[in-house]
Design a binder for these strands. Sequence first.
DNA 1: GCTTTATTTTGAATGATTTTGGTTGTTTTT
DNA 2: AAAAACAACCAAAATCATTCAAAATAAAGC
Lengths: 248, 248
Amino acid sequence: MLTDERHQYILRRLNESGVIKSVDLIERLGCSESTIRRDLAQLESKGLLLRIHGGAKLNATFGAELTYQEKTIKNSQQKMNIGRYAVSLLEENDVIYLDAGTTTLEMIPFLSNLSITVVTNGIAHASMLAERQIDAYLVGGKLKHSTKAMVGAPSQRSLMNYQFTKVFLGVDSIDMTFGCTTPDPEEASMKQLAIERASDIYFLADDSKWNKVSFAKICDVSDVTFITDKISNIHQPYLNQTTILEVD
Amino acid sequence: MLTDERHQYILRRLNESGVIKSVDLIERLGCSESTIRRDLAQLESKGLLLRIHGGAKLNATFGAELTYQEKTIKNSQQKMNIGRYAVSLLEENDVIYLDAGTTTLEMIPFLSNLSITVVTNGIAHASMLAERQIDAYLVGGKLKHSTKAMVGAPSQRSLMNYQFTKVFLGVDSIDMTFGCTTPDPEEASMKQLAIERASDIYFLADDSKWNKVSFAKICDVSDVTFITDKISNIHQPYLNQTTILEVD
DNA sequence: GCTTTATTTTGAATGATTTTGGTTGTTTTT
DNA sequence: AAAAACAACCAAAATCATTCAAAATAAAGC
């Protein structure tokens, strides 16, 4: 990984979130503590960020927005944690399905050097997998512009050619009574089909997804396993009805 | 491989991803470290990129915001002309196949606002088509890392679901007696299959592709129509045996 | 046409420079 | 006081600029 790539990643991450931990950068970028420390020192000397104990934060000129940013930071760090945890569930020679979506995208940096095969319906996912030289198959079909995902009948037919050991899906909304839902019915169909093609189904969901309902139903909460954080926010009844893996 | 071909490839990769590693270029272009270094130095002196330790990045003045089209103007007038000409052949409601590869990529900027449907096996193509909100279908199958193209048996099966009005293909080498050839047999198979699925077949080829031979044969020169420039460089016998459209 | 002679391009070798990951011991936080 | 994070340093690795000879290409002459 190039120095400039790291710098850009750090700044991007910082801009969308406001704060970043060194340990997260070390793990996510896959380089040593020294390197990250040097990166942060260099960026600070250019006035692009302020170092704090344990990481760095945005230059204080944007002070007013900090509260909003602190929210988004959590989301993006959360997603990374969820991604890492999801990958830790994998075993040698697994064949997994990676649903299109930003949360599942966070799994890919952790997939390098594992002997697994990935099937996905996300263009961004495919591109990232190719760059990291991970064995991957892409589901064919109609390209959905807004999410760069493959959906529709041909995609579903294409998906039926495969059988998976584990399936990782993103989801928009989770509700105890209405189940898992998402705005686009065609995406919901794809997810349903994937669910039928493996026994281990994982939904990746940060805490913003809970207690909401969208248009199209995917499945009931009792059918799958959730990988999430902030289990404290989740209403008690969920815990009895579903399997929830908490990411620390 | 010609100097200009390398330069164009470097700039294209740069436009796609923003940064590029020297080692990647060495491996992909199959030439020595010195050559790549010289290339990068030359392109930097023209102000087309900025060298960084380990590779190069986009010139900040070009910025990420410049459209693909604008950047291409500086880089490769030739291929852009070929792309524009190819698009001028399209009619309302055409269903076309766009082969993966850098030359066919040049068609996409001109496709906006046409009511056509595109099928492709290139990840980069799909991404670009989605950004421009062009109706597109992606062929499923195995992802080839180096070219980000879909190849192999599942892709071929996937391709057989479609029928096209026009097919646009890239090609590595053209020779009057050996026909059209390309280094990877699997890519050759994909092209062959596409050829069978339409009556109007166009090969996009700048003048560096002529009078060369690669490993895997696609078809004879008499079977297809070529879109090219610099017709003066092309040996006379070609003109009798094939259809060649010259781009001005 | 063919051969010989410049010119350009390329790849390898050298040593200088930069980047990197680990180690040390110190400082900060809990 | 223990754990985590830190800065400073060092040696190994990667990348770099420079040089030079071989190879490929173009030009000139026959």
